[in-house]
Design a protein around this nucleic acid. Structure first.
Lengths: 232, 232
DNA sequence: TTATAACAATGTTATATAGCACAAAAGTAC
DNA sequence: GTACTTTTGTGCTATATAACATTGTTATAA
């Protein structure tokens, strides 16, 4: 049994959400056509304007989805954690990718050819429903985000990003956020410059909302943080 | 034949996109369960936090979808024209409405109970695909919009809104945009204050990109407008 | 070890845009 | 018609934030 096949067997147990919606025949189809690929830290998974070919499922690691904006400034659109599906929007819309994805840390990604997914969709209403639901949720998040990023002030935006990171990746026992972002990434997530991300973080430290140790962010007063996030 | 039924017959011919995907039985089901409602100018169609119950199809008029942001500032998320479907995202996501919708001018809206839609979806893959496609396209637009609204400067954002209006509602023979927005709405679409919308419009007039006559906006140099929109 | 680069912190300056006040114009109601 | 509200247009001021420059700090490599 070659290594590749081995991995396919492995991942199938963890594809949870989608896997549960399939019958044995469909699962067999996936086992045959899916493959696992590994990405090094900062490696590109797909780029803006690439042709979408695969439904991707993040098995291990963290992925950032981002867009290059005006003047090279990049905006992080969302972060992916295991086990989340991504990279399917463009295909369904009949477009090229509008965003890019890169491995935020070393990643294992399961690739399922979109035509295979489409074939299964034809006879599997539960899976259709899954995608409709997922896309609807994401669209809601995107609409929220538009208003938050444009209308909230810098403190509110940064606080919101921290809350988002807490909710996505959780806290360690010592209340450290379970992901280590460079200040620049935090800025790209919050729509501000790196300097302002740094400054505002310092302010939060002074106000005893967080403490900093390099890229480690420890949450001291989560309630206050959520309040700052809400009030903009 | 009562007036209501009459209207149902009328609309069925114009529901185009979706209607085409249905068989006779499904159409009959729609005819029975759908109804048409009229809204006066500025009347609320649904509000933030309302429970979503209907798939809506705009038959006549114009609708704006917006969100109340920080400090009463509202942000127009998208505009709907005939014959477009809307109001379904929240139901599919299992959420209340995150946005509000109001009649921008006198409107006729066809209401289809979401449970009926879901019933049809179960056995109609083409319709599933329609929604998956539509949601995917909208999600792409939302992602684009996030970056544009946050990173482009005021001229770029206003120009983009004008281009959007041209593409959505078209131009009359004399190159007037086919929708008459208050400066405030234009501002809410472009994420700026009313004063700045007015000022920037005036600048565009001076630069001979447009001319103004009250709310009538006549496009003089569309190419230049698109250029301003692109370059931020 | 030193050299080199990437990142973090912070102060200073410049500027885009919001906020406000007020006047003019246009709609709307009575 | 008059009174009233809403919308539009402009100028002025305040301010949030970007842009830039500098310095300190930490990693990485030679």
């Amino acid at each position: 049994m070659d290594r590749r096949h081995q991995e396919v067997i492995d991942f199938s147990s963890s594809l949870s959400d989608v896997w549960r919606l399939l019958n044995e025949k469909e699962r067999e189809l996936l086992r045959k056509s899916a493959s696992v690929q590994h990405f090094k830290k900062n490696q590109m998974i797909y780029g803006e304007n690439d042709e979408p070919k695969f439904l991707m499922c993040l098995l291990k690691g963290k992925v950032k989805i981002f867009k290059e904006g005006v003047g090279g400034r990049s905006q992080i659109i969302r972060m992916i954690k295991p086990v989340q599906y991504f990279a399917y929007r463009a295909y369904f819309a009949g477009e090229k990718y509008l965003t890019a994805a890169s491995a935020f840390e070393a990643c294992s990604v399961c690739l399922i050819p979109m035509p295979v997914v489409e074939d299964i969709l034809k006879h599997n209403f539960a899976l259709c429903k899954y995608f409709i639901h997922q896309l609807s949720v994401d669209l809601g998040i995107a609409d929220e985000r538009t208003v938050n990023l444009t209308q909230k002030h810098i403190r509110g935006r940064l606080a919101e990003s921290l809350v988002f990171l807490i909710d996505s990746y959780g806290l360690e026992e010592d209340s450290t956020i379970n992901i280590y972002l460079a200040r620049e990434d935090l800025a790209n997530l919050s729509n501000m410059t790196t300097s302002n991300a740094i400054r505002t973080l310092s302010n939060f430290v002074m106000e005893k909302v967080i403490t900093l140790d390099g890229r480690k962010i420890k949450i001291i007063d989560e309630e206050k943080l959520r309040k700052i996030s809400k009030l903009g």
